[in-house]
Nucleic acid binder design. Structure first.
Lengths: 107, 107
DNA sequence: AGCATTGTACGACGCCCGTCGAACATCTGC
DNA sequence: GCAGATGTTCGACGGGCGTCGTACAATGCT
């Protein structure tokens, strides 16, 4: 018998978000493409739904960096892990930041 | 006799600016404070005019990273080096980016 | 039960980053 | 000319990053 924990995955709170960590998380092209895709989907996406040019373990690493920086929220659902942009929290702490970066990345 | 070269210091052109490099440059607290100070001065500042918690050589390194990312422009004047934010170029390539980051860093 | 799918954990590798100190270059002022 | 100020360059150091492969865990499907 295992204890049912709603939130096994560690996330920083809204107040704990740090600008440097967010900028560093978004400075990697793979992670930026993940964030751009999440913004486009506008919902929850599984880790595997991204066609990334890296292996699974590297993928796990990038999602972890994004989560620990507070850019995304991860939620377990069966064997898959659902990812979601923390748009509201980011907007609260760093107004306009995510939008301008995403617009800049689109070219 | 030495050849008088106007631009000895290498800078990327406006079109060469890369978002990842800019975000990485601004993800370091020392460099972000340099950029914030340059934005406040709204002019040209010498490298030594910043009270940074690092040695001279580390300082040189940070200014180099900012310059190669295209965030600042450096110009030699006697023994000192004058630094200036490339506000117009950054605004052209990444509209609103510098402003939102600076506002976020002050908040 | 057995197998496939999804993702994590761990160790390894090379590389770059932030930092420092020492030595050097260049200009300015006495 | 010489001393001081301003930065750069170089090598070194520790640490972290991005990447991979392998092994493992958990769930879903037949």
């Amino acid at each position: 018998m295992s204890i049912h924990v709603t939130e096994q995955i560690a996330h920083p709170s809204c107040e704990e978000l740090e600008l440097g960590a967010v900028l560093h998380a978004l400075s990697d092209p793979v992670r930026l493409s993940i964030v751009a895709e999440l913004a486009r989907c506008d919902g929850e996406c599984t880790c595997g739904s991204f066609a990334l040019p890296v292996t699974k373990s590297t993928c796990t690493h990038h999602f972890k960096v994004l989560r620990e920086a507070g850019v995304i929220r991860q939620r377990q659902s069966g064997t898959t892990r659902l990812n979601q942009l923390r748009i509201a929290d980011l907007e609260t702490r760093f107004p306009g930041l995510l939008g301008t970066i995403l617009r800049s990345s689109r070219g």
